[in-house]
Every structure is written in C-alpha cells, then in structure tokens.
C-alpha cells in the first residue's frame, strides 16, 4: 500500500547540510500495523511526514497505492491527503479556537460532507471515543488523554485508508497511553492501516512489525509472528 524506494531527505540551511533520511526502502501492506522506532533525531518523524504527504522527499520515490506521489505538487498532495490519510500527533495538534465537536468535524468540512451527515458521523465518533459529554469544550479544558482521543476521532472521522501516528502516547501517562493504544489496535482490527512512530518498546509491540531507524537508515525490521496478545 505504501512503498518507498531509495527515499532521501536532506535539510539545507545556509551552511549546513543535514541528511535526515538516507536510502529508505520500506513497504507497508494494507491492514498492517507498523511501528517505527529509533533514538531522537534518527529521522522517524521526517519519514512519517513524508509518508503522510506533509513534506516531500529530496530524492527517491514514494508510491501510495501504486501511485508515485513523490512528484506531486503541494496542491495535488493536499487533495490526495484529504480523506486518505489521518494523523495523530504527540502534541495532539488540535485547533485551540475550535470546540471538540468542531475539531472532529473539520476534515468532513473540507470533504464537503453535508451538514446532517457530518453531525451524525461526528456524534458517532464522539460516542465511540467516549467523549460525547465533552463535545462543546475547548481543547485546553480537557485532559491529555481526552485531547488525544479527540485527535484520534478527528483522524478517523473521514475513514482514511491509513492512520499515521507520531508518538501518540508521548505526552500521556501510562494509563492514558494504553487507552490510546487500545483505540489504535481496535481501529487496526477493523481494517485501518496504521503506521506509528514511538520511543516505547512496549507500545511498539502493539504493531505486527517494527522498523528500527538509526541516523537516517533502516537498521532492522522485526516481523512478529504473533500480533499482540
């Protein structure tokens, strides 16, 4: 479903050239839950951003559903993102000025889903994430776990083919962290492809495959025989 070929990302400032990703070749199949691990600065987030079409590679190819999206313009990437990819971040990245309901609704607005259907789907998601009572609150009024549940709801609301999660548990205590991981696993079981970046070996275990990155290279890929217990 996702496939990279010799993917490179080089950041250039006036004097320094930093290679963030070097010859990355990975493949993610439909329905998989892939964890990406590695120390700080190894390029995990850069890779995830490129996979999520939020950034473009400096060289190499990236095929999304067999289409070479690495040559897309920002305009085409934007329209391709819409409805295909959902994001969950460590810092939740909710819009502070919008309520819980409005934050979750936002992707549907850009997809021009009619208002009545939007309402129905957002309410379903609110129920599913058990935050219905909080729907009129603003992000700052919620706990971290609640915020991340809103973010997950927003990521899935448009029923994307893949969810990209960038340390979704990084800002959460263990109880809330497990809760979010449970949500992601459930989504995966329901058929959504998930790629997750994490520091935590425990949470990485939720995936059925772990990719280790170090200094911009893929060092190992461990395929688990058995998914999580």
């Amino acid at each position: 479903m996702l496939k990279t070929r010799d993917l490179k990302k080089i950041y250039t400032t006036e004097e320094v050239e930093t290679t963030a990703l070097n010859n990355i070749n990975i493949e993610v199949n439909e329905g998989e839950f892939v964890s990406i691990m590695g120390p700080s600065g190894c390029g995990k987030s850069t890779l995830l951003n490129i996979l999520g079409l939020l950034d473009n590679p400096s060289a190499g190819e990236y095929l999304f559903l067999d289409e070479n999206v690495s040559v897309f313009s920002e305009r085409r990437r934007a329209s391709f993102r819409k409805g295909n990819i959902g994001f969950v971040f460590q810092s939740f990245n909710l819009i502070d000025e919008l309520t819980v309901f409005e934050n979750i609704e936002l992707p549907l607005l850009y997809l021009r889903v009619p208002s009545s259907e939007r309402k129905k789907r957002v309410e379903e998601a609110l129920q599913q994430m058990e935050i219905f009572a909080r729907r009129t609150h603003f992000p700052q009024q919620l706990s971290g776990g609640q915020q991340q549940r809103v973010a997950v709801a927003r990521a899935v609301i448009a029923r994307p083919k893949v969810i990209l999660a960038d340390e979704p548990t990084g800002n959460l205590d263990s109880a809330h962290g497990s809760e979010v991981m449970g949500l992601l696993s459930k989504l995966n079981e329901e058929g959504t492809t998930i790629v997750m970046v994490t520091h935590s070996p425990d949470y990485a275990e939720y995936g059925n495959r772990v990719i280790h990155l170090f200094d911009g290279h893929v060092v190992t890929e461990n395929i688990k025989e058995q998914p999580h217990a």
Binding site: R75, F87, L106, Y110
Partner: peptide, 9 residues
C-alpha cells in the same frame, strides 16, 4: 492543521 486534515491552499 487545517492543511493536514484536508484544506487546500
């Protein structure tokens, strides 16, 4: 964020 959730330019 708006771009991420699908806003076009």
């Amino acid at each position: 964020l708006r771009k991420m959730v699908g806003a076009s330019r």
